[in-house]
């Protein structure tokens, strides 16, 4: 039959196992890494598909910037550059300056248009003031960046794109 010392020996053994398992949890970190390396499981980029030498070797494209305001609205919208000679696949940034020329607080929403319309799906905007409504204090002027990429799937017959914004007031929303 079991004696007091038998119990103690077993207790020590199991405490040791518990400690080893605690260590095993930490050992799993390098272990997983090694397994992933050996089997190539976690390799998101394989040796063959190295990034392109020049990520921006796209085709030239001319970009015109414009803005219109509906008659009777208090906005003034001005692109700070009128034209950019860019390439497809290249990040392009232009700034727009928008002024509220009234003495009221107004809320506006800009809506982009593309010419030709077929270019629209290929202009990938990363940042734009048209993403949300903008509130303006009376007489306030603010500058907004527009950041975008013209993707490389742009049909080759399109060499020139006009990006035009219209700004609308959102009357119901004014305080």
């Amino acid at each position: 039959m079991a004696s007091r010392t038998d119990n103690r020996i077993l207790l020590r053994k199991f405490l040791l196992i518990a400690l080893l398992m605690f260590g095993f949890a930490w050992a799993l970190v390098p272990l997983y890494r090694v397994i992933c390396e050996v089997t190539g499981i976690n390799q998101l980029v394989k040796a063959g598909d190295a990034p392109e030498e020049n990520p921006v070797a796209g085709v030239p494209v001319t970009l015109d910037f414009d803005a219109t305001v509906q008659p009777g609205l208090p906005w003034q919208v001005v692109p700070l550059v009128r034209r950019v000679e860019g390439r497809t696949g290249e990040f392009i940034r232009v700034d727009y300056e928008i002024t509220n020329r009234s003495d009221r607080r107004v809320i506006g929403q800009a809506v982009p248009r593309y010419l030709p319309a077929a270019a629209g799906p290929h202009v990938q905007k990363l940042d734009c003031f048209c993403f949300k409504e903008q509130a303006f204090e009376p007489g306030e002027t603010r500058r907004f960046p527009v950041v975008f990429v013209v993707d490389k799937a742009l049909p080759s017959e399109i060499g020139r794109i006009t990006l035009a914004y219209s700004v609308f007031s959102l009357p119901g929303r004014e305080p």
Partner: peptide, 9 residues
């Protein structure tokens, strides 16, 4: 005994 230490870890 085998897995609670792993959770603790």
């Amino acid at each position: 005994i085998a897995v609670m230490p792993v959770l603790a870890g």
